[in-house]
């Protein structure tokens, strides 16, 4: 004779594979009917010693309850039209689902950079897209007569406001709001606007991420360390950086920073024009004029700053060859990331 657990297992399997109400009724009769297998065991109880009888009786009752519950559930499932999981199941049919959602690659890239920089102690906040000329230019050592304003073709909304040409415009705002709490490590990201004609690598709207650190002891060497960590986080532990002299009105020394080519690992490819290096960001030590505009004292405070084109980094990370894809929002594009 089978043990009770064996009987239970067989009964449950029988119930789960019953694919009609008739078959289910047949299963019920086979186990719980007047001459059913479980009923037959129940009838043997009377002949047992009292202590065995109690234990055996409980086990039989539990088994009976399980079988009854299984019959109920199977009945409900059959009424709802659920097919039995049996040999007729074609497991190769696709699962029933909806297509997964995706984060836009620009957001994903900006968030990746934010996470790394937060880990390095930089705090995040948002700043206006429609910015005053003062914060966008004057506070950044770029007064109206400055030739560097030629580098920006600026959209104006009225006499005093521009669509910010760079997220660097946040620097004096942060410093002024800091209430003299030093050190400051701050970052922001957002849209920037320039009067560029649209082509494969230019779009009049683009995203930047800017960060700066000001303290008593913050040096160009820290800048290099911070950017190296950022590059390693973004492009992998083998990423190398190269610093080249450059010019920005709001930093001196200024450095243009290249990262070792993410595609060819410096063996030379079309992406890096066989140079092994990709230009990724501008950086430098903050100008005394900028610190003063932020209410700080350049004789006591010094700091570094850098700005990154998020679109460009996104294109490099995914080897996207045309910036227009980023703003076209074609599903076939968005679903790749």
């Amino acid at each position: 004779m089978q043990s009770i657990p064996e009987l239970l297992e067989r009964a449950l399997a029988h119930i789960m594979t019953s694919d009609s109400m008739a078959a289910l009724e047949q299963a019920r009769v086979q186990y719980l009917g007047k001459a059913g297998e479980l009923t037959a065991r129940m009838k043997t109880l009377g002949a047992l010693a009292p202590e065995v009888k109690k234990q055996f009786g409980q086990a039989l009752n539990t088994a009976k309850q399980n079988i009854e519950e299984a019959l109920e559930q199977r009945k409900a499932a059959l009424q709802a039209g659920v097919k039995p999981a049996g040999p007729s199941l074609d497991v190769t049919l696709p699962g029933r689902r909806r297509l997964a959602g995706r984060v836009h690659p620009i957001t994903a890239t900006a968030e990746a950079m934010k996470q790394i920089l937060m880990g390095l102690g930089f705090s995040y906040d948002d700043y206006p897209d429609i910015e005053t000329e003062y914060y966008n230019f004057d506070s950044l050592n770029t007064p109206a007569w400055h030739p560097a304003r030629d580098l920006h073709d600026t959209f104006y909304t009225d006499g005093e406001h521009v669509m910010r040409t760079h997220t660097t415009a946040f620097q004096a705002r942060v410093m002024r709001a800091s209430g003299g709490q030093i050190p400051i490590r701050a970052m922001t990201t957002g849209r920037c606007y320039r009067k560029d004609d649209i082509d494969a690598s230019h779009f009049p709207i683009f995203q930047q991420l800017d960060a700066f650190a000001v303290g008593y002891n913050i040096t160009m060497s820290d800048l290099r360390w911070t950017l190296t960590e950022l590059a390693r986080g973004l492009f992998g532990p083998d990423a190398k950086l190269r610093f080249r002299p450059s010019y920005f009105p709001f930093t001196t020394p200024s450095a243009e920073v290249d990262v070792s080519c993410v595609v060819c690992n410096q063996r030379g490819c079309a992406l890096c024009s066989r140079t092994g290096w990709l230009e990724v960001l501008g950086s430098g030590m903050m100008r005394p004029e900028v610190l003063r505009a932020g209410g700080l004292d350049p004789d006591r405070h010094q700091g570094f700053a850098f700005g990154i084109g998020v679109d460009r980094i996104t294109m490099l990370r995914h080897q996207i060859n045309d910036i227009r894809h980023l703003y076209q929002n074609e599903e076939a594009f968005l679903r790749q990331f």
């Binding site: 705090s123 290099r224 360390w225 080249r244 001196t252 200024s254 030590m285």
Partner: peptide, 27 residues
Amino acid sequence: IEDVARVLGYDAIAASPSAETPTAGLT
């Protein structure tokens, strides 16, 4: 300072972590 750094080469500036007080990165 920039002129000195250019003549020495920017590669003469080693990457080293900050001697400044750390801050928590918040959002």
